[in-house]
Design a binder for these strands. Structure first.
Lengths: 214, 214, 214, 214
DNA sequence: CATGAATGAGTATTCATTCAT
DNA sequence: TATGAATGAATACTCATTCAT
């Protein structure tokens, strides 16, 4: 091994350690931010929880604010990964949709503290251009709209602007996530997903009423 | 007029003045809380805006916290009034539903700062048992569920648990309210209401697909 | 007394109180700054010495820095007053000069802490355009130069640029002030003033040597 | 060469390297201390400037304080060397004096940062018994007083206590050094030295006025 | 010998709340 | 009843120093 290679490896090892340490800090920070809220979480507490010095935190994140925003970004990264993994290998479009909805609701049901973090982000950093959630939302929404478009062409979804679908369904999911968090004890993810799919797929009108409308 | 009556009247007059003053303070407080967030709104600023002494605020509300919560409650009170007024005199159930949805979306579209207040409430007072919004939600939801039940009996809505309808529709509205606030520029209330009603009434599946499912 | 007059008086009374309080704080601050140095003086200590709350200090001075600079300015204001008072009513130019020199040295001999403050100012606020001392120096120096000019015209001082006199004499005084402070125990002000005047008036050369030079 | 001799030599070589390194560190430290002030100079910055690790500095100086004081001592050592060199080989007493004055003023004119260091020393280390400057001053002053004494005996300087001369002249130089530093743009060293010598040698009084005084 | 990651003591400033006037 | 001057608890962040590698 050459000098350079050794140097590169050494650097890479320390860079790896750094990333690990960052993740550890973010994980702990997220829990505390979710538990006590942004303002009431103090760096001292976080340092104690991590069993490290306060100064060390500042070696990895330049400010409490930056730490919080990194934690919020991490939540969205994890959500994205979770949903992507859930639809991996599924080919039927409706099944993909169902899987994604279950993954979304399941992700936040398993980690209520992530919801809290999204709320804190909005409340504390009103100035930040756009909440993390919506930055990620935009990226994903395009893919779903393409899916809906092809389903309309295939005659499986009735002809309508695809934005209508993503808007209504997206809002229902977003709203459900918050409602679940705020109300605590709630129906299973499975049931909630089925309820949403039932209404959104079939509508609530009776056959008789549907005919009147058309 | 007896002494007692005069005393009562005097008291009543001053009580009326007190309520007026409380409203003035709440209105101003709400604007500031929405604009700067709870922590960054300081009593000094509020006193200046109201052109009164800081101490005077404390004569009406025992603490900053109490003031904020009263402001949040006021928002819900106003929302309730706005929706109630919108469905006043409408008899057709579907029209009532449409009016209520438009009133809900319209209320928060006209007052984005109210949305901010609901967010701040959640973020800052995690300990408060249940967010104001959901306290009010429960009261209202019963009435709508009765409406849906009678529509099912009348064969205008297909047979399904009414909770499914209120959950999905409620979430869609709640989610839309937040999404609208976070994304700023959005479609008109009219269009959004129509989109939601279209999807929730008719579903998105094509007739051919519906048959497969049944 | 009219309403307006009473109002004005009330305002004037509170303004007077404010000035008094400012002076009290400056006096105490100056002592602490001189005793411990700028960095090692903490606001807590000052508050305790004054028997007031820390916050109160900040009602009068926006920052520790501002407080310090105000204290330094106060020193120069007091010095100026002291010198002005000392030459009051003296008409003979040489006597005025002697009085001023004695007042200058005496002022700092009686208040060694003032010297410390000037040093701290320079050390801590290198960015401030010009030390307080030199701001005041400029104002005064003109007056003395005029005095020297008239003495040259009157044939009492030999013909030479007046700047030479103010530069050398000013430096000697400035240097003496510092030397006195740094060395502690020193000759009396009277003796020091006489020594400076003797050298500056008559020079150190013997008559014989003077003739060679001329 | 014996084992011991080789050992001694080896030690001597490494001791030499050590001294070199110490000088490098002092030189860099001095610049930073002068530029940013004592408190605002942090060891990290110094390490970067020197391209060495922070820990290494601590191998040469036990603390930031010790490092600073060593830097201040170094300034005085350099000043002494500079003045000694300037009078080397000059035999005429008055010329020696002139050369020393020019060397003193020139030294600090060329290195304004040295003045800053002397100020910082006083401001930050009030407890240190006596400022470096005055420690050195004492050593030198004796030699000059002997010179003046012999000049008085030789009838070239009028009869007066030699302390008077060193006090006034010393203060004038010390004061000039500070004034130059604080005011920035100043007359040339040559001119300033001449001004001081003119006043101190000949006094400012006219011949007529001198006769009155005697 | 050299390094730089880790540490935690130390501190200016803010702001909700009180209470004398 | 209204005021606003006074209070002091609370807290993010820095940086000299250490020590494992």
């Amino acid at each position: 091994m050459t000098q350079t290679a050794r140097g590169a490896q050494r650097r890479s090892v320390s860079a790896q350690r750094r990333v690990q340490r960052e993740e550890q800090i973010l994980e702990a920070a997220m829990q505390l931010f979710a538990e006590h809220g942004y303002s009431d979480t103090d760096t001292q507490l976080l340092a104690e929880k991590l069993q490290i010095g306060k100064g060390t935190i500042y070696r990895y994140f330049p400010s409490k604010r930056a730490l919080f925003l990194a934690a919020a970004d991490r939540v969205m990264r994890l959500m994205r990964q979770s949903i992507d993994a859930s639809i991996q290998g599924i080919t039927d479009p409706f099944e993909r949709l169902g899987a994604a909805i279950r993954a979304f609701l399941g992700f936040f049901a398993e980690h209520p503290e992530y919801v809290e973090l999204l709320i804190q982000e909005r409340a504390q950093f009103k100035d930040r251009k756009k909440p993390t959630y919506f930055v990620h939302r935009e990226t994903n929404i395009k893919r779903w709209q393409e899916l809906y478009r092809s389903l309309i062409e295939a005659g499986r979804i009735r002809n309508m602007p695809v934005e209508r679908i993503t808007d209504v369904l997206g809002s229902a999911l977003y709203g459900t996530m918050f409602t679940n968090y705020f109300l605590g004890e709630r129906p299973s993810v499975e049931k909630q997903a089925n309820d949403i799919l039932d209404v959104v797929f079939y509508g609530i009108l009776s056959d008789a009423e549907r005919k009147k409308g058309s």
